[in-house]
Nucleic acid binder design. Structure first.
Lengths: 222, 222
DNA sequence: CACAAAAGAGAGCGCTGCTCTTGTTTTGTG
DNA sequence: CACAAAACAAGAGCAGCGCTCTCTTTTGTG
């Protein structure tokens, strides 16, 4: 148990220092004063180690999002939305290589093992919770009607993941969810270089628009 | 010249087959019937080869976007917007590993060499062109006023990249641009697994919303 | 204490990127 | 045409990698 954690810690250190590509089992073992083959008692392969780090990263990010949300439990839904978005961005900026690990490019076609699902869902659940509360407090605007071709799919998405929210809201949320990660990824991976310099105000602006898009009533801004 | 192209072609083949991580100079050389050291006459390192592939990928994607745009030269701005978005998505689905190479995780902190800039800008320029034309044809709605904290930055962005567009439009476009890649990335990298099943209608829905967000008047949908 | 299970060590296989030296071929020019 | 220069290719080799196999040591339990 101890050793497993020590391996993950050292691996995370190397991940943060050099990125996933340069994470080497042999280097981890060396740093821990063991021989590389001994590591295989704890992780059957390098990929399994990475999967463990992925789950931890999802959990860490989810925890940040939940903490940011809970710290503003009394605020309005739009403020909580923005705060959670900023917490996710903050986590990403603080752990860029871990963010890359979970939202970067995982060999297209790769299907995450089921074990990652609960951890990966945590941030999304926070957003769903915000919208649910907003709806109950009548602070959620009904979106425009969905195009006909999307109605069935949106109904299914709602039934599967948030049966108490209208399909219009769920569809808008899923889009906003993906779009949020586009904003963060562009900042983190350099696409905003030479384009957006003052990132924080821009991010606040963008996520406020996202909030509006999902039906949250955004208070007049300063 | 010939050889450089042959190397890139074979490298692209391996990239498409196995992903960037497994692209091996030795394997490329083997397949070309040469010895690995001979490759270094043409590319000083594996990373340089990848950079060349990155530029080609940007160009290929840009070309798709431009072609989709030009094919609809007579249509309204909103249709052209949607068509370009769909062309980008189509290119990404057809070249997932190349997409991952350019919009996946390029070692956070990595700054793309200047040589990639023109190629990388092509898609964005298409969008700017659409908005410019829409504005000239009075089909562009003025966005809501920007928050005070973003006004200077938005003015700078507009001055740098699209001086004939209002800052409100430029800020909204940059956000939509990043958000588009969030949508595509989530689909391609598996985040939509078990969430969005019927991807095409969802994508059309999402990019229509993006079009609306940048001020394009979207015709009533079926 | 005895013994089985768990953990670590070590050697080794085939692969990688990359370098250095050697040999060969192509090319431009007097 | 002859010859030097430049371009190209080959081969051996270094250090590193993931991973496997076998063997030894440690450790917990009857």
């Amino acid at each position: 148990m101890e050793v497993t954690a020590a391996i993950k810690d050292e691996a995370r250190r190397q991940l943060a220092a050099e990125g996933a590509a340069k994470l080497s089992l042999r280097a981890v073992a060396r740093e821990l004063g063991m021989v590389s083959s001994a590591l295989y008692r704890y992780f059957p392969s390098r990929d399994e180690l990475l999967t463990a780090l992925i789950i931890d990263a999802y959990d860490s990010m989810g925890e940040s999002a939940e903490a940011a949300h809970d710290a503003l439990a009394d605020a309005g839904p739009a403020q909580r939305w923005t705060a959670v978005c900023e917490a996710v961005r903050g986590w990403a900026l603080a752990h860029p290589h871990e963010y890359a690990l979970i939202y970067g490019s995982p060999v297209p076609g790769y299907v995450a093992p089921d074990a990652t699902i609960p951890a990966a869902s945590r941030v999304a659940l926070v957003f769903i919770g915000i919208l649910r509360a907003a709806r109950e407090g009548h602070h959620l605007a009904a979106g425009p009607p969905l195009p006909a071709e999307l109605r069935a799919e949106a109904a299914r998405m709602a039934a599967d993941h948030a049966p108490d929210l209208p399909p219009e809201t769920v569809a808008a949320l899923v889009a906003a969810w993906a779009e949020l990660y586009g904003l963060i990824g562009f900042e983190l991976f350099g696409s905003f270089n030479r384009v957006v310099e003052d990132r924080e105000p821009f991010f606040r602006y963008a996520v406020t628009r996202l909030a509006h898009g999902v039906g949250l009533e955004v208070p007049a801004q300063a």
